[in-house]
Amino acid sequence: MLHIKCPHCGIRSQNEFSYGGDATVKRPELNKEISDQDWNNFVYNRKSLRGKHLELWQHLSGCRQWIKVERDTATHEIFNTLKANEDIS
């Protein structure tokens, strides 16, 4: 079971969190023309990376904040955790 450092609460066990997918996906702006391909990429197409991955988790049973977690999908090593409004420097 992973140990995730919530940037708001500190280190907590994985079972307090829920997984939220790729954190690098940006939702297209509202009311903007977008091609079918771009929309499909946003809704469906995800890379299944082996290695470092920036992903979203929600601290569901804690502060309820969505956070970003930089994790190795193969080894589960967690390199960094960020608040929703932060980006990897």
Binding site: S18, G20, L56, Q58, L60, R64, Q65, W66, A84
Partner: peptide, 9 residues
């Protein structure tokens, strides 16, 4: 969770 997702992210 859905609402929180859109509001926070």
């Amino acid at each position: 969770s859905h609402l929180e997702y859109y509001l926070q992210l």
